[in-house]
């Protein structure tokens, strides 16, 4: 049986039919073609499927799409405004925080959620917020430095 799902993705209202077994990740990638959100482990360990639901990071692979009814979902595609990259995106590029790029969308959304909640995080707080985003290129230091730089950038903005 299909269910009608009304929710918002990157501030756009979305209205579609979904099967209960479809995850939010599947709907984002396969129905809405928002392939910035990555399908890594599928079991909530790696964080590459991280999206924001009502502003909070969650693993889209462990959330049934039907459960997103009425909620606001933000994916990496939603971070760009007027063709301008988000400060964290710019800082990741400038600091070499992107290697293979597979973890990057999840890293971005976890970082943006952190900075929204806590505009001046300590290094420990940044590492804690990113603990659920595994980078197998192991470039964590550069990622942390990028988030620190974005913090300064946003402060001046």
């Amino acid at each position: 049986m299909e269910y009608k799902l009304n929710f918002s993705v990157n501030k756009q209202p979305v209205d579609l039919l979904v099967e209960p077994h479809q995850t939010l990740l599947e709907i984002l990638r396969d129905n809405l073609f928002l392939i910035g959100t990555k399908d890594g482990c599928g079991t909530g360990d790696c964080g590459s499927c991280t999206v924001l639901v009502d502003g909070e990071p969650v693993c889209a692979c462990l959330m049934l799409a039907v459960e997103a009814e009425g909620q606001e979902v933000t994916t990496v595609e939603g971070l760009v405004t007027d063709s301008e990259l988000h400060a964290v995106q710019k800082a990741l590029i400038a600091n070499g925080g992107v290697q293979c790029g597979f973890c990057t969308p999840g890293v971005l959304l976890s970082s943006v959620a952190l900075l929204t909640r806590n505009p001046q995080p300590s290094e420990v707080e940044i590492r804690e917020a990113l603990a659920g985003n595994l980078c197998r290129c192991t470039g964590y230091d550069k990622i942390v430095r990028a988030v620190q730089e974005a913090t300064k950038e946003l402060e001046h903005a």
């Binding site: 964080g47 990071p57 969650v58 462990l62 976890s110 959620a113 917020a129 603990a131 659920g132």
Partner: peptide
Amino acid sequence: IGSVQIRNM
């Protein structure tokens, strides 16, 4: 428990 993402769920 888990990570930020897991604790949010």
